[in-house]
């Protein structure tokens, strides 16, 4: 399981978002499958998808395993977090940043606004 601290530190590019969406929908996928899925809405080259997936892997947003198939070696990618966990971690980061910047005022604001 990926540590909360390792998760996204910055917003995603449109291609990164499209790739993650495709992975959340399809589960484990190869570069070619992801490319086929996103190419109509996000016109790009297959190599751009490969490079972007490599970057997402470096940022620990996706995991990968190597498989040997008919076409030779390839990666099978999957996301490290579910879509819900990912959204939560983004929200948590945003809230943490606000609290860090505004301190007590932010905490009391959240208390008033969201008190049940």
């Amino acid at each position: 399981m990926v540590k909360q601290s390792d998760v996204v530190n910055e917003t995603l590019s449109p291609l990164e978002s499209a790739i993650l969406e495709a992975l959340w929908q399809s589960g484990e996928s190869k570069v070619r499958d992801i490319f086929q899925k996103i190419k109509t809405k996000n016109p790009c080259a297959q190599s751009s998808v490969a490079v972007t997936l490599d970057r997402l892997y470096e940022r620990k947003l996706v995991r990968r395993t190597i498989t040997t198939g008919r076409g030779g070696l390839a990666y099978i990618y999957s996301t490290c977090l579910s879509k819900d966990e990912f959204r939560k971690s983004l929200a948590q980061q945003a809230v943490d940043r606000i609290v860090e910047r505004f301190g007590e005022s932010a905490v009391s604001y959240f208390n008033e606004k969201y008190r049940k």
Partner: peptide, 29 residues
């Protein structure tokens, strides 16, 4: 040699034991 990288790339080295390096990313695309 196979380089464990999703970035499509290939290069070679010379010397006494020349070698070629191809990434998995290259094999994929």
């Amino acid at each position: 040699f196979i380089v464990d990288s999703g970035r499509p790339e290939a290069f070679s080295t010379g010397g006494l034991k020349p070698a070629m390096f191809i990434s998995i990313g290259m094999l994929e695309v």
